[in-house]
Amino acid sequence: MNITVDEMEKMTGAMSSAELASERHSRTTVGDFTAADPRMTCRNVDVWYGSKQAINGVSLDIGKNEVVSMIGPSGCGKSTFLRCLNRMNDTIDGCRVTGSIQLDGQEIYDKSLDPVPLRAQVGMVFQKPNPFPKSIYENVAYGPRIHGLTNSKAELDELVESSLEKAGLWKEVKDRLDQPGTGLSGGQQQRLCIARTIAVSPEVILMDEPCSALDPIATAIIEELIDELRANYSIAIVTHSMQQAARVSQRTAYFHLGDLIEVGETNQIFTNPQHRLTEDYITGRFG
């Protein structure tokens, strides 16, 4: 008698919500979720927090050199989905991901795959700027150092400089690299976090509402930066601002209660949404 009452309850709970989810699967995504030149491909991704399903069979590609934005009312699972892409959800107790997510044809949820190098390949920028409470230099140098990307101090210095350069922060901080990263302004901190992310040369960068804690000017700088970064990286960005999605992304995905309702060219989504829910959301009738 190994199974306790508790565990039985959990199992039945999971089953019933799975059944529930399969019912809700009738909602199919409107629009083409594939990308011409995909870097990451997600197929039928389900995510559960315990017995509660947060993502229902989402399929979406992230192409090379494109910015995909994810919009939707809060609580619809944008962050949850984004965090699947670098297995950040592994750290949450009781979070379960099924379906297929591939990076360059490699299944990232494969049992044999180590999430540590994956996270070097798929970097992440968080909602609230979270520099390490260390110097600006150390913030950027940390990733390359633990991965052993450089062979000498000079090389590391160079990498730090070029990363800060790409993040558009070099000019502002080059004279105070040894000062704490936490002493920068919010916008600078977020760019420092971007520099830290690109220092390990990821292929994909995930951004979860990177500007929600910033003022409009800092936001504009970051948006410009995102546009530049597109030349070298694939970017998936979650945003609550439709203007931002319209400005920075080529494709937009609209999420609603864990479903991917509609995907398409950003222009088309904002000018000519196909699904009623999408239309309600972008016209401000909902959310």
Partner: peptide
């Protein structure tokens, strides 16, 4: 220690142990 520090470290590819020893423990 704020969880954002752990996320930051994990996000650049630090292993859980490195995250603890490099960032969480010192704080």
């Amino acid at each position: 220690v704020p969880p954002s520090i752990r996320e930051a470290a994990l996000g650049v590819g630090a292993s859980p142990l490195q995250t603890q020893f490099h960032h969480v423990l010192p704080l």
